[in-house]
Nucleic acid binder design. Structure first.
Lengths: 229, 229
DNA sequence: ACCTGAACACCGTTCAAGT
DNA sequence: ACCTGAACACCGTTCAAGT
């Protein structure tokens, strides 16, 4: 008689890397970075903390994997666009919106330098940059600037959200408190910060983000693309 | 007979906010973010962990204070420059170099949104931006873009260093490993990343950073400053 | 007023033991 | 092969007790 097959089909509830990552994303969305612990994860997956280590090396790898799942999804949803500039805007906005929906991705991306999630973004930005006619020897510098800007905004958005969540403020209250704090700075040492508080109070993060992208695109455009030096 | 004065002069070794911050900076420089614990700090200051809480509310405040000390120093060392563009470059480079020397500042800055350290930087950038003739209603958008870029590069540099430190690699080895990983990516899905690995391997972080600043400045310049719309 | 250090409520990670 | 859960070596923070 044949023995039981050595690898019986997993039962519905069995653990897997993907199920763990999915649960991690839910926790991160609900409770922020501080909420993701192996104990909370184990509870949600109805198992012990040790079980998770069979599928994932450590917390860092889990964060990168969760981040990558979001970035991959976001990038796959970006549709091709008419001009290279429009493509770059669309990719950047896709990432912005993904981070807006999952703030923890902003900091996770930054903490995983050179790893898959960032590479996905880099790759998507690279194609339209080539189409723009950026010189080969300036490709790295140029994508790198775009990437740094996108990650910079993302990380700050993440920090803002985290701060507001910790303090128990919503966005409006948070901005108001910062704006007030700035307006109370020393008049002699901080004239600019004092005067700009108003613009801070009712700005639009998404518009500002896009304006920054356009500044960089403007800089790329004004460089000229000829074979100079 | 007069009683002992109620507040005798502190003995040399007594604790103070400043001494704590200084010690924190030393630890952060030597051991990175992970090395800063209240126990390590207490040991260095020859006291107990509880004593520190008399002078500082919590770890977050300590990090912001340490970060602020570095930023204040860096900004005070930036000298006034001939043109607004040169000033902005000098401020940005001053910050870059400070983060290069104290990588943890890169992430600390990002995690303290709207707080004093970032405001110092914002203030310094604001003056030359006005001199550049940026329209009043675009001031926030413009400094914000510069700030996001500077913080973005800073946070990534911090992450790179942290990663290399954790992995026990120096910069060259780290770049080589990333470059190799990229060149081994799927040829169909990652043509750009594969081809750019070479430029990554021997790039200069400081030059790239400045090139990004110049792109943004170029974008600001090409906008025109007139009273349009 | 300022400091001490034990104690509390957590972490990430490991590992013998089970199935 | 995969899971369990106690145990280890840490954390940040608190607080009664000291000076």
């Amino acid at each position: 008689m044949a023995k039981r097959p050595p690898a019986p089909p997993r039962r519905e509830g069995s653990l897997s890397r993907d199920r763990i990552i999915e649960a991690a994303i839910v926790i991160l969305d609900e409770a922020g970075e501080g909420g993701l612990t192996f104990r909370a994860l184990a509870e949600r997956l109805v198992t012990g903390p040790g079980a998770i280590y069979w599928h994932i090396a450590n917390k860092g790898e889990l964060l990168v994997a969760a981040c990558d799942a979001i970035v991959a999804r976001a990038m796959s949803e970006v549709s091709g666009d008419a001009t290279p500039e429009a493509s770059i805007r669309a990719i950047a906005l896709g990432m912005f919106d993904a981070i807006d929906e999952h703030p923890w991705v902003g900091s996770a991306l930054t903490h995983a330098p050179g790893q898959l999630p960032a590479v996905r973004l880099l790759e998507r930005l690279g194609q339209p940059l080539r189409a723009l006619g950026v010189r080969r020897d300036r490709e790295w510098t140029t994508v790198s600037a775009l990437l740094s800007y996108i990650l910079g905004v993302g990380a700050q958005n993440a920090a803002n959200r985290q701060f507001a969540l910790t303090e128990g403020l919503e966005r409006g209250a948070f901005l108001a408190s910062v704006s007030t704090a700035w307006s109370e700075l020393d008049a002699e040492d901080y004239p600019f910060a004092r005067s700009i508080g108003e613009q801070l109070r009712d700005h639009d993060d998404r518009e500002d983000f896009l304006a920054g992208i356009d500044l960089i695109l403007g800089g790329i455009g004004s460089l000229g693309h000829g074979p100079t030096v």
